[in-house]
Structures are given as C-alpha cells and as structure tokens.
Design a protein around this nucleic acid. Sequence first.
DNA 1: ACAACGATACCCT
DNA 2: GGGTATCGTTGTT
Length: 202
Amino acid sequence: MPRGFYDRSTEIVAQELLGKALLRKNGNHWMGGWIVETEAYLSSDDPSSHSHRGPTRSNASMFDHAGTLYVYPIHAKYCLNAVTEQKGKGSAVLIRAIEPVWGIERMIARRGLTDRRRLTRGPAMLCQALDVDRGLDGADLVGGSEITITGGQSSPEMTSSCRIGISRAQDLPLRFFIDGNWFVSGRSSDHRRRPCKPIRRS
DNA sequence: ACAACGATACCCT
DNA sequence: GGGTATCGTTGTT
C-alpha cells in the first residue's frame, strides 16, 4: 500500500487493513496471508498505547512516519504494528491475526505445529510464523523488500469490539476483525459486537 | 543493580 | 475462566 494509505486516521487504517495481504520475504518467495484482525492504538487520550508516555529508545519507530513497521517485545515474544498518521504522532495499528495463505509449509516449520488455525491466530503467533523480531523494527512497509502490505480482498464484512489484553482504556471499541473469520483470535464470544468494559474508578 | 510489569500463549478445569 | 512461564523495558534504589 502507498504511504498515503497509512497517513490517515488510525481507526480508519485499522479497519481498511482488514482483507489486505501481509507479506514477509522468505528467500526467493513470500509468505503471509490476509489480515483478519487489527487494533488501533492512538496518539492521545489512549493510556494503553505504548506512545502514551512519549518517545523512548524502544518505542521510537512508533513516532516515525506513516508506513513504518513497529515491532515490540512482550512476554519473551514479539508483536508487529503499522505506524499511522504524521511523523511524531505516535499512533499505530496492531495486526493481531492473519489467515495463512502463502508459504504455509514454511510457517508450519517455524511454528512447530501443523494445525493451520493456530499458525497465525494471535499477534505473537503470526510474528513467529513470519520470522519477525526486533531486527525488523523500523523497517518501511511501503515498497518493503523484507516485509510489506499489499491490496487484497474487497470490503470484507467487518465488526468491532474492545481491545484484548489491556488494563486501561478498556471502554474504547478499537478492535476490528472480519466477522466470522476462522482465524480471528480470542474466544468465539468475543467474535461478536458487545459492550466494552467501563473504566474502573479508583 | 534490582524489582515490577506487560498490546501473550499455553495448559488446566 | 484462571494460573503462569518467560524476558525486554522501565522505574526505583
């Protein structure tokens, strides 16, 4: 996708990434699949965003220009984001799940399991399957030679819910996924629109 | 130098 | 629905 695709409202980018192809170079071939689940992390008023306390050494790429890849470590694993909006804003879209399509055998080998549903069904699982770690942090997704996102399926049926695994700003409906897709993470009860938890008062 | 904390995933009931 | 392994980052001595 061109730079301008990412240089827009983070919530719009998160929704429009659904159905696009996430591709990772593997030798002379590409592996990857359709993006089926995303979450928006905003530049302001979003205490669960890594950018909330301003730039640091580790989140620097989140403040780079739109279309930059932001890879961060968590619980000895990695997750990947596409940076959105203008340089310096600190907003991004977390890609939480893809539907595996290309290079499935290679992904099976990297994950060490054969169940296709479990190959890339979660942000850390898809990073392991696609051989993404901090070495790719800061890469450019626009015309990227190692990892990129291209056009794909047209207007999939999308729905939203609250985000997964966070302790703050749980009321914001910033998770987007393709309705009914088998490769969306979480429980099936989360695969439906439902009210988000209210912010807990202290 | 050290302790606490996750945008997780796996295993259990 | 809950407990926890595991480790980079950050904030605190």
